[in-house]
Design a protein around this nucleic acid. Structure first.
Lengths: 234, 234
DNA sequence: TACATTGTGATTGTATACATAATACCACTG
DNA sequence: CAGTGGTATTATGTATACAATCACAATGTA
């Protein structure tokens, strides 16, 4: 993924950006956490300048919220927020499979089948992390097949906010049978270049994700309310 | 639009960001132009720090290209590039009208009709800038009606790269009759909450834009080739 | 006790200083 | 004359310094 060939030099801002992004997505930096420049700088061993630039980037991606002269904090994930993202992703995921139907190469189809098989194998391990990884790679094959760079980067940034919910979503899917079935359906449709069926399958696929994620958020909220009412632990 | 109520303080980086963005979109800073920090700082009367942060933001929006240790330049607009953006925008514009069909309020419908009438009035002036402005406002009404914040900001950033071509596109449209007709069709469909027709109309609307913009880019390229062959003027 | 006020510490905004890499220019050599 | 090497200049990367503002607490007063 990185353009290491010509230049393996990575500015600190990018390194910081990646680290912060990772920390936010894994929940190590929880929503609402303040991002203080000197503090982060100490922790990462760099000055404020790269930290600030990284924060600017995260801000535009929607992962952190800024209030001028107050500071930055990890963005709150609200149901509305996530719902908005999923709505957009639904449209773009459908666009992805439609374009893939038109443009996928024979090699792409072969990759896609490999990714599908790898996913089914991953499911058998019953390990959520392994399955999630295989799922990401499956989708990446489709996304790359569109050949649309803008779409690729948008899909990337729109899938970020839901990484936190991915494991649970995968556990949710009763026996993972649904996931396997949906993937197969998508692969078949793309192979036959049937955009209509592919779109339908992709739509259902993300609708299922949506349901699971929204349910999780509601449960989190409920838990928070409980804590607020009956006292929260440190 | 600005949240001026609580805080009318605008960090320099945002002010710089707006200025640079404007300069790029109007073509004052042509594609390929190098963005040198000290130079821009002198011109705008600020230090490098706000300039750098503004550049980071523009970079994520795709308006400038960065090469580490080399510098930033105004992003080249290629046909592929623009084509990618338009492909995504097509899907999102359609999503916009579909959501608007579901969610628009009576006030929204009233605003929409006002915007449509204002547009038709603008067309009569025959002034491209006036028409373009009315066109933007018409679309903004629809986009706002979706209530999807993420979609709103995406539409915003995806329409940026084509601002340069907007005037020509409007001149292109034979007598503007098409534009008026398309707008009317969209308004009628949204009012009747007929998502299918609305989607179709929105799709055609952007397909027309696409044709005009692609044609313009090809003409520009041709001109450049000529200049390269027969010598370019200063 | 309630509330206003002021002062102090902490944090961001902005500017500048220093280090390092890239580029351009020029002289020198073959 | 072409090509190479070295140096000077320029621009970016990073760190630090200074200024402005905000949060909060301590203090004093009604």
């Amino acid at each position: 993924m990185p353009k290491a060939k010509e230049e393996d030099f990575l500015p600190l801002r990018d390194s910081v950006y990646n680290k912060l992004r990772q920390s936010i997505l894994t929940g190590e930096l929880p929503a609402g956490e303040r991002l203080m420049e000197v503090h982060l700088g100490d922790k990462l061993g760099v000055s404020r300048t790269p930290i600030r630039e990284a924060i600017r980037m995260l801000e535009l991606e929607g992962l952190v919220t800024m209030i001028p002269r107050k500071g930055a904090m990890v963005a709150q994930i609200t149901e509305k927020n996530m719902s908005d993202v999923l709505e957009v992703r639904r449209a773009l995921d459908i666009l992805c499979v439609q374009l893939a139907c038109e443009r996928i190469t024979p090699e792409g189809i072969s990759d896609l089948k490999k990714a599908r098989d790898a996913f089914e194998k991953a499911v058998e391990t019953n390990d959520s992390r392994v399955i999630a990884q295989a799922d990401v790679e499956f989708h990446n094959v489709i996304i790359s097949a569109t050949g649309n760079d803008r779409l690729i980067s948008l899909e990337d940034s729109l899938s970020l906010p839901m990484y936190r919910y991915r494991y649970e979503y995968i556990k949710d899917s009763s026996g993972h049978d649904n996931l396997v079935k949906e993937h197969r359906r998508i692969v078949n449709a793309i192979e036959k270049r049937n955009a209509e069926i592919a779109a339908e399958a992709a739509g259902e696929h993300i609708d299922n994700q949506r349901r699971s994620i929204i349910r999780q958020i509601r449960m989190e909220r409920e838990e928070e309310t409980m804590n607020a009412l009956y006292g929260k632990r440190k």
